[in-house]
Design a binder for these strands. Structure first.
Lengths: 154, 154
DNA sequence: TTGCTCCTCACGTCACGTGAGGTGGC
DNA sequence: TTGCTCCTCACGTCACGTGAGGTGGC
């Protein structure tokens, strides 16, 4: 988190306002503020009170992931904090990346990210299974009902 | 809802206590009471205050469906009320079934049930699609991370 | 009779929604 | 300068959780 920078060579250092971000990820400003309060987006960044919040592309990507985890897997925010640490790890990775070349440390961080993403994949799979079962029951119900209807119409 | 019955020929008129039901469907007594308060289980049945609640097999099946809809699709209780009316329709169907033979009315109820179940199937499908997309992104992330790790280890 | 589960308030909590009143940037 | 979006309290709401104190059935 370098301050007072303005170097050349930084592509797409786009900044978004909270309303834009909300629109991009499909949520509300209030929710984003709440997540910041909980520390879900990383350090509140010592923003002086009253000043408008600004978000980067990585912030947007992170929020999108969080919202998806929440909506698709139904995780509580407490559980989300654990999984969102994957992004935290990746950020510290990026910070490391430009620093001194400690490949051991870099590998450790990458492995940590991998295991977190693997856990997410597992959760998704489990969800899909439950949905598959549910769908089977529903279609069974449907054929049953249609059979009954056919009997009535005859 | 006949009272004071004890006829022969009624199979499995099993009655469950609220704690048993909670265990069977994977929720808590408090939640079941709350759903009854909202009318999700049909008429509160004029139960005198303080008397223990008793549930039938169909109540259990209904609750199981509600809980699944809630957990897998993330529906609000307001939305659930609409979908739970499928069960309501089926109950009135059953009531009709033993009554005078009005096949037209029966067919109407069955068609209504069908369309409600079809809506549920649609919701499930849409969920599955989103999960599929999410999983694709996650596995893409994974191969990316694994590649990076391989580079580091070399 | 003794436990265990049930009952009804009723307050607490989590994850935000919704104004109220005011300030800031294109 | 005028709107529009942003800001911070702060109270409301939805979907329950969690005791407190008491009653009921095997």
């Amino acid at each position: 988190m370098r301050v007072g920078e303005g170097e050349i060579g930084e592509l797409s250092r786009q900044r978004y306002r909270i309303g834009e971000v909300a629109g991009l990820v499909g949520t509300t400003p209030r929710t984003i503020r709440y997540y910041e309060e909980l520390g879900l987006l990383g350090a509140e960044e010592l923003r002086p009170k009253g000043v408008h919040r600004l978000y980067s592309d990585t912030d947007v990507a992170r929020l999108r992931d969080i919202v998806r985890l929440r909506d698709l897997l139904g995780l509580s925010l407490d559980e989300l904090i654990g999984l969102a640490d994957a992004e935290h790890a990746r950020e510290s990775l990026r910070a490391q990346w430009d620093g001194p070349a400690d490949n051991r440390e870099r590998a450790r961080i990458v492995r940590e990210s991998i295991s977190l993403v693997e856990r997410q994949v597992e959760l998704v799979r489990s969800r899909q299974q439950h949905l598959d079962e549910f769908q089977l029951e529903l279609t069974a119900k449907l054929t049953q009902l249609r059979r009954r209807l056919a009997e009535l119409d005859s």
